[in-house]
């Protein structure tokens, strides 16, 4: 049964609240960043659609970094630990962040993961976000740079379909370019789309299979 209350105008109160809904996460992200900065650790948020090649890219970057610096990986995954196991095979500390039904990582989860590892002497943490090209844009984690991985297998128009993701990124990796011809996708045109949204952003074409662009991505992240 529905009950209706009708108020006379003098009974209605209208209070200005000005409460930001994204601020709670943003505050925790700043806290994470301050903690990371105090240890001189650079955290990189790796975002991208499901199947864009985030885990493979992270694995390739770890291969290039692990003998030079102490590095760690946070692996966001809804349920399984397959990806985390793959990275852990390289002998670096891995924290799996299982979001269960959550579609993005948030600063609170990353803050908890930061308690799980020793930050002493650590140079970099690669944070692999949940495969999703929409939600993570709203939730900064406290990273120094946000990387978006977009692969040619996602088609020609992924950038213009998900502009928010790219507007908030610091680096865009166009992955699987060895498959561009087979997919009939033009890498230059994908790159132009990114620059149309954000003229100053670095875009690096990569192939985790051939190794193309991976040194450049590594160097760019180390300079972040």
């Amino acid at each position: 049964m529905i009950q209706t209350i009708e108020a006379s105008p003098d009974e209605i109160y209208d209070i200005e609240l000005e409460h930001s809904l994204l601020e709670a996460n943003a505050t925790l992200a700043r806290k994470n960043r301050a903690l990371l900065d105090s240890y001189g650790v650079t955290a990189i948020d790796v975002m991208g659609a499901i199947g864009s090649g985030k885990t493979t890219l992270v694995g390739q970057l770890i291969k290039r970094l692990k003998d030079r610096f102490r590095v760690a990986v946070f692996n966001g995954d809804a349920t399984t630990s397959n990806d985390a196991d793959l990275i852990a095979g390289q002998g670096v500390p891995v924290v799996q962040i299982a979001t269960v039904n959550g579609c993005h990582l948030d600063a609170n989860l990353v803050g908890r993961a930061l308690q799980k590892i020793s930050l002493e002497g650590l140079r970099m943490i690669l944070i692999e976000n949940i495969g999703n090209l929409i939600c993570p844009a709203e939730f900064p984690l406290g990273s120094k740079a946000r990387v978006v991985v977009v692969s040619v297998t996602e088609g020609q128009y992924m950038v213009r379909k998900h502009p928010q993701m790219f507007l908030g990124a610091n680096l865009v990796v166009v992955n699987k370019v060895d498959l561009a011809a087979a997919m009939d996708v033009n890498v230059d045109s994908l790159t132009r789309d990114v620059h149309r949204l954000k003229p100053d952003i670095t875009v690096i074409p990569t192939s985790c299979r051939t190794g193309l662009g991976l040194e450049e991505v590594t160097a760019t992240l180390l300079a972040a």
Partner: peptide, 28 residues
């Protein structure tokens, strides 16, 4: 919306329009 300056083509910063906030609540 893009982050390219409409006048000089440089990369701009968003100043407004990237938040989500409760403005007001009406109650009895």
């Amino acid at each position: 919306p893009t982050l390219e300056c409409p006048t000089c083509g440089w990369a701009v910063e968003p100043a407004e329009g990237n938040d989500c906030a409760i403005k007001s609540v009406k109650f009895i």
